[in-house]
Design a protein around this nucleic acid. Structure first.
Lengths: 250, 250
DNA sequence: CGTGTGGTTGAACAATGTCAAGCTCTGTGG
DNA sequence: CCACAGAGCTTGACATTGTTCAACCACACG
């Protein structure tokens, strides 16, 4: 719950963005790169556990994750929590709010997270002057929609074991494509996070993870989950795996 | 399963679109209206039960619902079905596919449905020439995201009774804002649809609906659900209700 | 050394699923 | 006009899945 957010005005120019080098992202031309670099107002680094955006807030900013893990969630009045999706480098944070007004979910950091900061006010300029980037934003929103469709299928129709397998394969594959594993290869979440993502109780989640571990698909570490066989997990969950293609990112 | 789709090349000019008169939708200026009217290639009418778009297809078209009810869903290999969301007049059908390639879910008509047909090929022109409409498309995608967030919370964290209450209140309120009730006031779905939306078995769904009926919140009709007290349903589900504001539609 | 967070376990219980049967329509072919 | 078939709804008995409660453990941190 530490809201200790360290704001750096320091800023890496987008031309030197380390994420741009990943084969996973589409290439920008010089003009796009210049515009985005100008659009970017600074960087923000938050601690693990910090809230990046809070439900109900009307934020003046829009973010892109530069490094680290986070997640989006909603709370009910009585405290029930549902994790909606996870955010990783290259993901946009706060697009819903920027386009539609106030946020209807919160976003929290799982690890230290660094974000590129943009001004919501200038978003319309992007639409006016850079159709290709406007298209990218729609693409990104549509992609999130797809992921949510998958999650919905998972929670609605898969058994606890299948759900857990799907989630871990998903997190593992996504993290791998953005080179998020610094040697550690461990997904930095607690079993409570998994429970709140899958719509299960923590006790049942624990027993379910144990079954996955017994099958040699994962190993539970002190501080997260080590995926040993993502293909095995995907097969168990009857899941196709992630799209391989290039994607845009702002 | 009847794929009997009647294609009319007949086309109502967008300037005379009956949906434009609803207070629910934002107004277009003349230029936007002219562009969209030109963008629109014709109309398509399909029977109840017909498939509008099929998972895996790479459609050359993009649609807007002019009248009728439909739903989006995904299937697993073994036949399990998850309904993701419902489509009603003003909703875009096929945006994901148009922006990203092939469809990853199917869309089916619940009642006879009439759609406005657009060419996917011309979508980039929209982005190049009409920033306001491009913004609208992102808005629409972000809105769908929000709805999916809500559904995820519902399936993940609400009890069967709460889930059913939420779903019916949601459908009722949405249908009302687009004047979809022609006197009938009945939502044209089967209990199997509800079960597949809520992630429940049909038997349990039946018993759950009976409880809602006993409380005087709904009444089950021959051909669908009659919502008697949407606020009561929303309260039971601990749901805020729909956004009242204006929304764009293409 | 306490204290707190996160993980583990077993037992009792509640929620939900499965199976099986029967019912009421509606549409269709004889 | 009747008989029949299929779709959708209903119900009860029972099986399974998942939840709650209540401990206890291990480790990290002050």
């Amino acid at each position: 719950m530490a809201k200790a957010t360290t704001a750096h005005k320091q800023k890496t120019p987008c031309q030197e963005c380390p994420l741009r080098d990943l084969p996973h992202f589409r290439e920008f031309n010089r003009e796009e790169l210049n515009f985005v670099s100008n659009f970017k107002k600074g960087e923000l680094t938050v601690d693990a556990g910090a809230t990046i955006l809070l439900e109900g807030a009307y934020s003046a900013h829009l973010f892109t994750v530069l490094s680290g893990w986070g997640f989006r969630y909603k709370l009910m009045e009585d405290g029930r929590r549902q994790i909606l999706n996870y955010v990783m480098p290259g993901d946009v944070v706060g697009l819903q709010g920027s386009v539609m007004g106030e946020m209807q979910h919160s976003t929290e950091a799982l690890s230290p997270v660094t974000l590129c900061v943009f001004e919501r006010e200038e978003l319309m300029t992007l639409y006016n002057r850079h159709a290709s980037l406007a298209f990218d934003l729609t693409w990104i929103a549509a992609q999130e929609e797809r992921i949510l469709d998958e999650h919905l299928l998972s929670i609605g129709r898969r058994s606890a074991l299948e759900r857990a397998a799907y989630l871990l394969a998903y997190l593992y594959q996504r993290a791998r494509t953005v080179h998020l594993f610094n040697g550690s290869k461990v997904i930095p979440i607690t079993q409570q996070h998994i429970a709140d993502t899958l719509g299960l109780s923590i006790v049942h989640t624990n027993k379910t993870l144990k079954k996955l571990a017994e099958r040699g698909l994962i190993r539970w570490q002190e501080r997260g989950c080590d995926v040993l066989d993502d293909e095995g997990l995907a097969t168990l969950a009857e899941w196709e795996g992630l799209d391989e293609g290039k994607r845009p990112f702002i």
